[in-house]
């Protein structure tokens, strides 16, 4: 399976064009608090306004062990945005059976480690993706499937579809194809496992590090931002 092209995180990082802006944007109160300006005044009480902090790793030896355990027990939040979502179903059937890899679909982001974005991402969907991603507990990993998720695919000139998800959330592994075969997705998962074991899948911390940049990008396209700045 190694003969199918896989793009992993370091490649994409090199393509990031704009580095994060230094300093505080107007929606960020201070190092630990967010303004949550998108919310009406009476709703601000209902949402947590803490700014996420970078998670600390343990001692390297332990961390290696934990990374191994994480790679052996990936719980998937399948975000079926487009046609690529179809590809997850065969994965749990007897033919491909991801459960032998220790993976299982999980219906709630709280308990999932891996969000799988299955296709084109419209603005409306992007909002939900961001929310679900932020609700996951770290370390968390993103696998984006289909060319639509990589460069817009057939929606390259659509008025309502983003063309690159990595501007909005950090993606660990892309799987190309329109649509990719389940084997390809499996290969993607295997790649992700390798990355995790190597300690390279630190998308969560990347997101926190470049939090302002990601938020700017998200807010640029999501016009009705009626949610807190970070969905805890």
């Amino acid at each position: 399976m190694s003969d199918i092209e896989i793009k992993d995180n370091p490649d994409i990082k090199s393509e990031l064009q704009t580095p994060p802006e230094p300093g505080y944007s107007e929606w960020r109160k201070d190092e630990n608090t967010l303004y949550n300006d998108g919310l009406p005044e009476e709703e601000k009480d209902w949402f947590c306004d803490a700014r996420p902090q970078k998670a600390r790793k343990s001692v390297q030896v332990i961390e290696n062990f934990l990374n191994w355990a994480r790679s052996q027990s990936l719980w998937i939040l399948a975000f079926g945005t487009g046609c690529g979502a179809i590809e997850l179903r065969p994965l749990v059937t007897s033919r491909y059976d991801i459960s032998r890899l220790g993976m299982q679909p999980r219906p709630t982001p709280r308990q999932a480690n891996l969000i799988m974005i299955g296709g084109y991402v419209s603005i409306k969907t992007l909002k939900r993706i961001v929310r679900s991603y932020e609700q996951m507990q770290g370390p968390k990993f993103v696998v984006a499937v289909c060319s639509c998720a990589i460069n817009g695919g057939m929606y390259w000139d659509s008025y309502n579809t983003v063309k690159r998800i990595d501007e909005y959330i950090p993606v660990d592994v892309y799987v190309t194809g329109c649509m990719p075969r389940p084997e390809a997705v499996l290969a993607g998962f295997n790649k992700l496992k390798e990355l995790i074991k190597a300690g390279k899948a630190e998308g969560q911390n990347l997101y926190i590090e470049r939090f302002d940049w990601y938020k700017e990008n998200q807010k640029k396209v999501i016009k009705d931002w009626n949610m807190p700045d970070y969905n805890w």
């Binding site: 709703e43 009480d45 209902w46 949402f47 947590c48 803490a50 975000f79 709630t108 982001p109 709280r110 939900r128 993706i129 929310r131 679900s132 609700q135 009626n226 949610m227 807190p228 969905n231 805890w232």
Partner: peptide, 19 residues
């Protein structure tokens, strides 16, 4: 553990409407 508020719940990728 981060203390969160009442609407910081997983709501099928939506946000709850009103309490």
């Amino acid at each position: 553990a981060q203390k969160v508020k009442q609407f910081n719940i997983v709501y099928a990728a939506e946000r709850p409407y009103k309490p």
